[in-house]
Nucleic acid binder design. Structure first.
Length: 579
DNA sequence: AGACTCACG
DNA sequence: ACGTACGTGAGTCTC
């Protein structure tokens, strides 16, 4: 590693940089202040340079970073894009990100930091600096990391080509990077008073529930401790544990199992209420107000691009993809996600996207006809499975059909269906059998997908995103069955992820022309959320709906449902008028 | 650090 | 006889 050359003079370096065809850069920043503390570079002849940026050098860097003819390579560049953007630099032509490349090559790895990649891809030890490292050591580490990134890029590019992942990389994942950076920089406005008031109410209810439960238990205990609850339920109160789930430490007290205990003892119902409210209070009502950024007054979550095995995004710090939707207080929490004065929240949801993808991938005649028909898909499924008229489908029957439609995308078994649809295992077996008679193409598709996983060791989406499943060759039936379910689910969930990512890229590119002040603020797997000036609502809704529905042509129509409101919690269907 | 539980799609 | 529906992230308890 000592072979790399070092440029000494800043102006010489900037002149040289401007003439490069491509370079690696790596930004160091302070975690607390989010300020750029240094930028290391690696140039074409393995020369490295470390820049302590001041106003002047950032000004000189701007035209270089914004020059579309100079390619920029880096590692985990989203944070860098955000930092540059906050300094008025709109970076162009990012053509390699080593973290994303490594993720596409093996999306199950979970860890794509430089230290790990240097070891696995370059057989090099590149340890993190010691805790008591000197400033010189840190500078040297930063410079070395730029060189490592260059070498990783050289190693990963042919691997992407070999695995046929280059198109996915260039056309979806890299263009998505600045979209995610912008979503994170945009953030979402929160009315913390709504959350604080709701938390006060919930705390009072929780106190009352606690008193009730202590009385029923005959003693006080920690309601948040599953172990203590287990002792109360099964030792002190002597409730039967038959038919209940088991974990590694004993009988489960999960919501599903408490539900089964409701008939045996009223304490179960009270615990269910306690759990529901305690969850909302600690995870959302109390937590979210603390995460409002003092500078922007908004919450800026992370949208992670290299986490999931299927190609979905994930969200963290905080997770804005699991904000409650159900119940009285669930609605209140969403009502705290507000649109600033003069704007509205606009939400666009793909309707039954995964089921449409199955219909298309499986080329299932019956399911394709159902979607083309435009009627409610679950009712149609119910009508066909039970051979009854559409008008005779009761809500109960429809609910069962909905469960089975969902279950198909997960590779369900009779037992799982029986549990979640609250029917007997025999009934579940019968439903599944009839389902595969009605949707024969789906049945064949699921079988072929498992066979493909076994032949190739991986499965893939329509865009060639791959998930490797070595467990499919396991001699242990349970391990193999698990891999088969993952094999079934990934092409469906992953294709949906590909599709919404493509839509996000198109929308991000063209939205400023339609409505320069509109912002993408959230992505929740099949939903995009925008903040839009009221006067632009009609044209933005029209543009977004059109972009989402036409981003790819399947064998069935793709439908995006539009909603609008003053907050994420009070959205009403938005009807687009014909022009 | 791991287990449990539960919020979302 | 049995542990079986996919993908996440976070708060809390326990050791």
């Amino acid at each position: 590693m000592s072979s790399c050359k070092i440029i000494q003079d800043k102006n010489d370096f900037l002149k040289k940089l401007a003439k490069e065809r491509a370079f690696v850069f790596n930004i160091d920043s302070s975690l607390s202040t989010e300020k750029i503390t240094g930028i290391s570079f690696c140039l074409s002849d393995a020369e490295t340079f470390y820049l302590s940026p001041d106003k002047k050098s950032l000004t000189k860097l701007k035209p270089i970073f914004e020059n579309r003819k100079i390619e920029k390579w880096g590692h985990d560049l989203k944070q860098s894009i955000k930092l540059l953007s906050q300094n008025g630099i709109d970076i162009q032509s990012i053509t390699f990100d080593t973290a994303i490349a490594a993720y596409l090559l093996n999306p199950g790895a979970r860890n794509y930091n430089l230290e790990t990649l240097a070891s696995t891809k370059l057989q090099k030890e590149f340890p993190l600096p010691e805790k008591n490292a000197s400033p010189d050591d840190l500078l040297e580490y930063s410079r070395q990391s730029a060189l490592i990134i260059w070498q990783l890029k050289e190693a990963l590019l042919p691997e992407l080509e070999e695995a046929n992942l280059l198109k996915l990389f260039k056309e979806i994942e890299l263009p998505l990077l600045p979209v995610l950076a912008e979503i994170e920089n945009n953030g979402v406005k929160i009315n913390s008073t709504i959350l604080e008031n709701a938390s006060k109410k919930v705390t009072i209810i929780l106190d009352e529930l606690a008193k009730k439960i202590y009385k029923m238990a005959g003693e006080e205990f920690n309601l948040d401790s599953p172990i203590q609850l287990r002792k109360i339920l099964f030792e002190k109160l002597g409730l039967k544990t038959q038919g209940l789930g088991r974990g590694k430490t004993g009988v489960s007290t999960s919501a599903g199992d408490l539900q089964k205990l409701k008939k045996a003892h009223p304490i179960a119902g009270e615990m269910l209420q306690y759990r529901e409210l305690a969850k909302l209070n600690s995870t959302y009502l109390e937590a979210l107000p603390k995460l409002i950024d003092k500078k922007t007054g908004r919450i800026h979550a992370d949208f992670n691009q290299t986490v999931t095995s299927t190609g979905r995004l994930s969200s963290s710090d905080p997770n804005l993809q699991n904000i409650p939707t159900k119940g009285e207080f669930g609605k209140v929490i969403r009502e705290a996600f507000i649109a600033p004065a003069g704007t509205k929240i606009l939400a666009a949801d793909y309707a039954h996207i995964e089921l449409r993808i199955i219909a298309s991938l499986a080329d299932d005649e019956e399911m394709i006809r159902a979607f083309k028909n435009g009627e409610d898909i679950h009712s149609q499924t119910a009508s066909k499975i039970w051979g009854i008229d559409l008008k005779d489908v009761t809500p109960e029957i429809r609910r069962a059909a909905k469960t089975i439609n969902f279950g198909v995308t997960y590779g369900m078994g009779a037992k799982g269906l029986a549990e979640s649809a609250e029917i007997s295992i025999n009934e579940a077996r019968e439903f599944i059998q009839k389902y595969f008679e009605v949707y024969e193409g789906v049945s064949n598709f699921l079988r072929e997908t498992k066979e493909k996983a076994y032949d190739l060791g991986y499965v893939e989406t329509i865009f060639g995103r791959k998930r490797y499943l070595p467990e499919i060759f396991s001699p242990i039936p349970m391990v193999k069955a698990e891999a088969e379910r993952m094999a079934i689910n990934m092409p469906i969930q992953g294709t949906a992820a590909d599709i919404i990512k493509m839509a996000m890229i198109k929308i991000h590119r063209d939205l400023p022309k339609v409505s320069p002040r509109s912002k993408i603020i959230l992505q929740v797997h099949d939903e995009l959320v925008f903040e839009t000036p009221e006067k632009d609502l009609e044209k933005v809704a029209k543009f977004v709906k059109d972009a989402m529905e036409k981003i790819i042509k399947l064998k069935v129509p793709i439908i995006a449902e539009m909603k609008v409101g003053d907050s994420w919690g009070e959205l009403k269907k938005f009807v687009i008028h014909n022009s």
